[in-house]
Structure formats: C-alpha cells, structure tokens
Design a protein around this nucleic acid. Structure first.
Lengths: 229, 229
DNA sequence: GGTTTGATGACAGGTTTGTGACAGATGGAG
DNA sequence: CTCCATCTGTCACAAACCTGTCATCAAACC
C-alpha cells in the first residue's frame, strides 16, 4: 500500500523491459502487459496509481483503452500517460482530449519519463510528496486531520492530535514537559507541568492498537519522546 | 469564482497576446505579465488555478519563479506549465523536478497548449472543466447544477450546493469555518462563524439517503470535511 | 526504606457542536 | 402589485466532548 504502482502497457518487449527496470529502480511496483484488453482487466484488479499506455498496441488500440479506462468507475480517475511514436500534433491533442493526463513522444529518455511520472505522483499521492508525516507505523495527514496506525484510523482529541503531530515532526527527540507546553499549548498558556503527563497518557491510549508496542518513551527526569516502532 | 484563471508569465509580447487570446476564447480568465517578480505577487493576490511560465524571462528567471511559487504557502499547489525554447532534456527534467507539472517546448501550437492545460484542469478542478465531480457515492454536475447520491437526485439550496461542490473539489480535506466562509460565501462576507454549522446541518439533511452513512465529518476544533463513503 | 518521579482514574467546569425555531430577505407566480 | 414558497443568518438551548487538576498508587532511584 505504500509503494506506488504503475501499469505499463507496451508491446515492444525491449522498451517495456527498459521502462520496467527503470521504474523498479525508482521504487515503483510495475505490472506490465503488451495487450490492451488485458490492460483493462489488470487496471481493475490491481488499481494502479498511474498507467503508462502505448498508443500502438496489439488488440484494442491505446486510445480506446484510454477511453474505456475513463469510463470504468474504478479507473476513471487514474492518471494516464500516453507513449507514442507519432509526433503529429493532432494525435497528441486527441490523446489529451480523450482523457490522458500527459503525453510523451518516442524516442524519450527514461529519465524524462520518470520525471513526468514523479510530477504527477506528487500531485495525486500526497504521501509521496512528503505531505504526510510518517514515523514507524504511525502516519498523520495534517490536511485531512487524520492519524492512522497500521492503517487503522485513530480517534484523538484536539490536544492529543497536536501533541502527536509535534512528536512526529521531531521523531526520536526528547522534550521536557515545559517544551511540550510551549510547543503544543503555546507560550502564554499557564498550565501545570504535570498536566502533560495526563495528555501523554491520553495520547498513549489513543494510539493503542492490539499487538503494537507503545512508541511513546518516558525518559525519567527529562521528558518524553516518540520512537519509530 | 466560476471561471478558471490562468497566470501567464511571458516576455514576448506577440506570443503573450496570442496565448492570451486563445485561452480567453476557451473561457479562461487570463492575467499576463512579462516580469518574474510581478508574477510572484500576482500569483499570491489572484490565486490563479494554473500558471503558464516562460523559462527565459526578465528579472527573476523562470525556474527561480517556479521554485518560489512552490515554496509559498498560497501557491505551493498551483500547477505550473513551463514554456521554453530549449529542447535540452536536462532542462526539461530540471523543470519537472523543480515542481513544474508539465513542460511545453517552443514552438508549440496554441491548440496543444490548450489541450495540456485542459488536461491538468480536468484533474485539479474537474468542476471548472465541465466534468462531473464524484466522491464516494456522491456525484455533482456543475454544468447541469445537479447533485445525486446513489443515483438519487438531491434537492439542495443554493448555498448547500456551493458548499457541497467546494467539498467535492477537495475531498477528505478539513476546512475551518473561516475557510469555508471565504470559499463558499466569498471573502468579503461578514457572517457569523457559527452560521456555517447551520448550513452543514442543512447539507447533511440534504444529502441524506436511507442506509447511507453521513459523509460529512466533523473535526472538533478544526472544522469539517467530506469523506468518500 | 525513603524519596523522587511517573501513571492512572475520577471529576467538575468549560468549550465546542447539534438542532429547532424564527424573522427578514428574495424571487417567482398569478 | 401581492402572495407564497423558499432561502438565510442568528439565536438559544441541549448534548457531546475536552481539559486541567488532584489524589492516589506504582515504579525507579539512592
């Protein structure tokens, strides 16, 4: 779930292998097929994050595959990059109008293709663009105001959420109660130091999932820290 | 608020005018400037939906403008298409890695540029591109001014409709009452924050269908969000 | 053992959100 | 022009939920 998945539809075996190799090196999971109809099935089964689609392929043509992908509920919003030997402007425009998100003309360099894929991934998978904090099995999406552990959604109160966010911004570091008060409650708050203990407990309870160890470490006479587990 | 806005940064007056004309004909609102520094100011003021950015411009260079746009909170997520005379692959990759979303090499045809812009708009503001928004079992057709849930047509008041549309353009994201007022009521409206609550309730009531869970999530002390259900 | 430090459960008070009611505004039908 | 239906922004109250504190117990330290 954490590795972005590509579906590659390309009937030139040499080129397919080259692309596959390159993207695997970049940390993508790649499924490849030379056939348009199979591509449609795979797209529904595997729910890839992005499709690389050759224009000229066996079976159903690339542009037809593109159109059908757009029509299917499950794949309607998966970004598509068209690959093509043709340089004709009309084809490019037709590709984009059919619902492709981008268009790369052969011969292209693998590096450029990677750069374009990365650019699109940045847009659609915030987790890959560093917009989601992640420490060990914890993840926190500030925009969606959602925190998860091992995929499970956590329900935290406002203060616990801020506390967790602060910890996740500085994983492993130990903070004194005073520092936590300043950072999470604000400098002007005038609150008992010991109150932090209570919120730490509430946080611990909030991020508790069966079988997982407690990532909040107590450092006696120093404070607390969040450890990657 | 309903017309997609472009910011064009191009110092060749003839080309700028050509592009501007073309996009206005396509129904875009275009702001143009030849200057990089001014572009940065305009981008913050006008919050365009997309930026067309020439690589070689007076003042701050295109790539520098791109980098700064990415760094500014307000503009970090505005898509950028780079325009350039250079065909060198390294430049293209550098542009994409800097945060540009797409890259068009001069000479390009206005039609292709339009197609690329449309492709990106479809992805980021589907409602503006005349597409049907879809989040979970909700669908909203901005053109037809119609919203449905599980196929059932919903009857919503004007404000609830705008509210739903805004939520559906940013699914999963949490917005404070203030942000919602700005986005749905307009920046100058001077309305009680709590009024948002009431419209949220009206929206909830309006999209209620038997057996379906409530997709509007309350995030205590933060705001509301629309979740795919 | 005595002392210090942290964990925990309970709780009263406070804050935030949900909800029904309402009066004024708006706009269309007749 | 008047009537009627609809929509809007507020308010007041209830309900849900959070929060800071304390007293007490457990653990670590010396």
């Amino acid at each position: 779930m954490t590795v972005p998945r590509l579906l590659l539809v390309e009937d030139d075996p040499a080129l397919a292998e080259l692309i596959e190799f390159r993207f695997k090196a970049e940390g993508y999971a790649v499924t490849a097929t030379p056939d348009g109809d199979e591509a449609l099935l795979l797209a529904q089964e595997e729910a890839p994050d992005l499709v690389l689609l050759d224009w000229m392929i066996e079976g159903t043509s690339g542009i037809e595959v593109c159109r059908r992908l757009r029509r299917l509920q499950e794949t309607a919003h998966v970004p598509i990059i068209m690959l093509t030997a043709r340089g004709a402007e009309d084809d490019r425009i037709r590709g984009l109008d059919t619902g492709a998100d981008d268009y790369v003309t052969k011969p292209f360099s693998p590096r450029e293709l990677v750069a374009r894929v990365n650019a699109i991934m940045r847009r659609i998978r915030p987790a890959l663009a560093g917009e989601v904090l992640s420490v060990g099995d914890l993840a926190l999406d500030a925009k969606a105001h959602k925190a998860t552990r091992r995929g499970q959604i956590l329900s935290l109160g406002p203060t616990e959420f801020r506390l967790l966010k602060f910890f996740m911004e500085h994983p492993g570091r130990v903070f004194s109660r005073g520092q936590l008060l300043d950072a999470v409650w604000g400098t002007e708050s005038d609150i008992e130091l010991r109150t932090v203990d209570v919120h730490i407990r509430r946080l611990r309870k909030g991020i508790e999932v069966p079988g997982a160890p407690d990532p909040v470490r107590t450092v006696r006479s120093a404070g607390y820290s969040l450890e990657a587990v």
